[in-house]
Amino acid sequence: MTAHNPSSQSLQLTGDGQLKHFLTLDGLSKTLLTDILDTADSFIEVGERTIKKVPLLRGKTVVNLFFESSTRTRSTFELAAKRLSADVLNLDISTSATSKGESLSDTLLNLEAMASDMFVVRHSQSGAPHFIAESVTPGVAIINAGDGRHAHPTQAMLDMLTIRQHKGRFDGLKVAIVGDILHSRVARSQIRALNALGAAEVRVIAPGTLLPADVESLGCRVEYDMARGMRDLDVVIMLRLQKERMEGALLPSEREFYRLYGLSQDKLALAKPDCIVMHPGPINRGVEIESAVADGPQSVILNQVTNGIAVRMAVMSMAMSGQVAERGRGQQGGDAA
């Protein structure tokens, strides 16, 4: 199963450019990405209320369809749906009928028969959410919660919201993504988002064994030397070493990786004094990042987690709104016919 990039824009957007699925950042405009950030900003305040709910998805059923394990992503999607007043069904695929041989298509048909309105999909195969979006009944929104090495668009957008909160802008910013770029769906989505939103420069810093062959075609500059790559940075995003996806000896050792590419206070000092430190989590302390940096004054890692709920609320509400609008137009067209 591969990602269906050419059709992603037409698949994701309604006829008038509203979001109806959220599968990838490829092809999405700066205006739409800014709308997502602005909508997420408006939801930040909901999390500070005594009663943390708005009625935007009241009466709607959201199914968390996770074929891969996840703690942060799944729990923040669940919280986001509940804060939008949706009914939420968490499906543990490892114990579901799929593990007994039921096909993905049959699983979807059964879930649709329960009158589900939205599937939040996390899958180990690139392109799975695209396949599902092409297969489901019209009116059911699909949100990509991470697919293979392809994309993790909500993580990238919560990272963009965090950057905008702390820097106030994207133009002129120099941003580096450091570590296991090869296995990171997050990095691909971050590079797309940063370029679309107008960052001055996106760098990736990693050993050659942890870089995809086509990385520069994504729109970034490659640095193999951490000291050189950290110069003049406004934002540094550290990535988790995804050892579960690695085949063969891509790394000499974790200790050697930390010496060359781990973020220590000494390396952070090479960046601008107000450079912020980010990490999508979970963090391997002492491998990717020093505890003093992860917990230090320049770290915004916990802000990212908080922003995850607001961004996922924004994407879910916007996609559902787009589905409702598209269905309304379809009914009008049917009436006219």
Rank of each mutant, 00 (worst) to 15 (best):
260 L>P: 10
82 K>D: 03
165 Q>D: 13
305 V>L: 11
99 S>M: 14
99 S>K: 10
325 A>T: 06
149 R>F: 10
192 R>V: 03
101 G>H: 13
12 Q>F: 02
317 S>M: 07
215 V>M: 06
190 Q>M: 14
318 M>G: 04
73 T>W: 03
48 E>Y: 13
167 K>I: 12
77 F>L: 00
253 S>Q: 08
15 G>Q: 05
99 S>N: 14
150 H>T: 03
262 G>H: 12
177 I>C: 09
138 P>L: 02
155 Q>C: 00
44 I>M: 13
108 L>M: 09
138 P>A: 11
127 G>A: 06
206 A>P: 02
132 I>N: 12
236 V>L: 01
122 R>T: 11
53 K>L: 04
180 D>H: 04
179 G>H: 08
237 I>A: 09
83 R>T: 04
235 V>L: 08
320 M>V: 08
125 Q>T: 05
42 S>E: 09
122 R>F: 13
69 S>D: 13
135 S>D: 09
287 V>I: 06
35 D>W: 08
67 F>D: 14
128 A>D: 10
157 M>C: 00
310 A>S: 15
102 E>A: 14
301 I>C: 02
67 F>S: 15
284 N>R: 01
25 L>G: 02
24 T>G: 02
132 I>R: 00
141 A>C: 07
335 D>M: 15
311 V>R: 03
107 T>K: 08
72 R>K: 06
313 M>L: 02
210 L>N: 00
146 G>K: 00
209 T>R: 14
227 A>R: 14
11 L>Y: 02
17 G>C: 05
136 V>P: 05
264 S>E: 10
81 A>L: 01
68 E>R: 14
252 P>K: 12
61 T>W: 10
268 L>T: 01
255 R>A: 13
72 R>T: 05
9 Q>I: 03
329 R>V: 11
147 D>V: 12
188 R>Y: 00
34 T>C: 08
268 L>C: 01
88 V>G: 02
61 T>Y: 07
7 S>I: 04
207 P>L: 06
238 M>S: 05
334 G>Y: 15
216 E>C: 08
245 R>Y: 05
226 M>A: 12
252 P>E: 11
